[in-house]
Computed example of a mutant assay.
Amino acid sequence: MNGIRRQRIAILISGRGTNMTALAAACMDPTYPGQIVGVIANHADAPGLETAERSGLTAIAVEQSAFADRAKHEAAVLKALDDLKPDVVCLAGYMRILSEGFVRHYTGRLINIHPSLLPLFPGLDTHRRALATGMRVHGCTVHFVTDRMDEGPIIAQAAIAIEPGDTAETLAERLLRAEHRLYPHALRLVLDGTVRMVSGRAIVKGSRAPAAPGDDDPPYILVSPEARRG
């Protein structure tokens, strides 16, 4: 990276961590602007922890059942994260709703991948819902995390066609391949400063639009689902 510091990435998972694996593969490229400093799971038996260890990554279990309540568990996760000193935190199938305080602690540095073309189908069971409503396309979204579930500013999206005969399972399998391409791309946009969150909006560097009030950086424009960068 010609002496440029690679930013520190921490990843939160709950299960297999396939998107974690895609991010780890991207970070193996020495020109990628980030490196993974740790993977944290809320279940000690999450298969993704073993995958992370095999890849030489620091793998940490903060077992939620070991804590009396959600707040105590979240405080322990936050402590483990802070010890890693991440520049960006990636949620990769982390199946816990984060508190407003947690999100605020990492405002603008906390991102998530969701298996739908947000704002369509926030929450769970997105593939079945897309099929049930007669959609002809489906997709995934990487977005900044805010205190409103799946409503954070959009960084990037990818779409796939829904094929005749698709089931929720076949659609999920095909979309997962798109997720594995999209997440490293979207993370790079955040790491290199191409996209960032300002005043609750995702903005992309390089436009002639006025900068946000008090922003001394070069001008930015709003990023929308219709104005994605490849």
Rank of each mutant, 00 (worst) to 15 (best):
Q7G: 04
I9R: 00
A10N: 12
T18Q: 12
M20R: 08
T21G: 12
D29E: 03
P30T: 11
Q35V: 08
I40W: 04
G56C: 10
A59V: 09
A71G: 02
K79W: 00
L84E: 00
K85F: 02
P86M: 01
D87L: 02
Y94F: 09
V103I: 11
T107A: 12
P122R: 09
D125E: 14
R129N: 07
A130H: 07
G134P: 10
M135G: 05
V137C: 12
H138A: 08
V142Y: 13
V142Q: 13
T146I: 08
E151D: 11
G152T: 07
P153Y: 01
P153R: 04
I155Y: 02
A158D: 13
A161G: 09
I162A: 05
E163F: 03
E163M: 05
P164L: 08
G165R: 14
G165A: 12
T167P: 01
T170H: 13
E173A: 15
R177S: 11
A178K: 06
E179N: 08
R181G: 11
A186S: 03
D192M: 00
V195Y: 03
G200Q: 07
I203T: 13
V204I: 14
K205C: 11
A211G: 14
D217N: 13
S224K: 15
R228S: 12
R229H: 15
